[in-house]
């Protein structure tokens, strides 16, 4: 936890003089830790000369900023209209059922966090999903299952590449 907070303190130093630097900072913290821990709110507030409530207010306004840890892979299903017209509602219920979780939840093995997203700009080849920074087009149930089955635990990746 201390190492984490040191890291965050450095980031605060780096972003506090940037005009409108709070969002870039929150993105950077999320990038480094996967979430924005409650414990960082105090030092963010101090660094940016804001009240804790103000910082809380900003974090809670944006869908991207989660305050709880998430799984190793973020799987987002597009819920917007173009994807709906191509059957995304079925993908959505299939995903929830096969993973056994609702939106905002993480599988018990810590592998996948499921989230809704409203358009990925891939609407000519819907339905679309995003896994981490990769986007997939024309996803149906079996393609979804295949993509999920290909996901690795990061530790396993490391073992593979170092051997």
């Amino acid at each position: 936890m201390n190492a984490k907070n040191n890291n965050v303190d450095q980031l605060i130093e780096q972003y506090k003089t940037l005009p409108g630097g709070l969002l870039p900072l929150l993105h950077a913290i999320k990038h480094a830790l996967g979430y924005i821990p409650e414990s960082t709110v105090g030092s963010i507030a101090k660094g940016f000369n804001l009240s804790r409530a103000e910082v809380h207010g900003v974090i809670s306004f944006y869908h991207d900023f989660n305050t709880q840890p998430v799984g190793h892979h973020r799987v987002q299903i597009c819920r917007a209209e173009a994807c709906q017209s191509m059957g995304s509602r079925q993908i959505e219920s299939h995903a929830k059922q096969s993973l056994g979780i609702e939106y905002g939840e993480t599988t018990s093995d810590g592998m996948v966090t499921l989230e809704p997203v409203y358009c990925l700009g891939n609407c000519a080849c819907s339905p679309s999903i995003r896994i981490n920074d990769d986007i997939y087009a024309r996803v149906d149930k079996s393609r979804f299952d295949q993509l999920i089955s290909e996901l690795n635990m990061p530790e396993l990746d490391k073992v593979e590449t170092s051997s």
Binding site: P19, L22, L23, P24, H27, F48, F61, H63, D64, F65
Partner: peptide
Amino acid sequence: RLGAGAYICGEETSLLESLEGK
């Protein structure tokens, strides 16, 4: 500058607030 998953931030004044870090 990156948004953070809020449709309303496409509205120009909301966007400006967001750019200001609010």
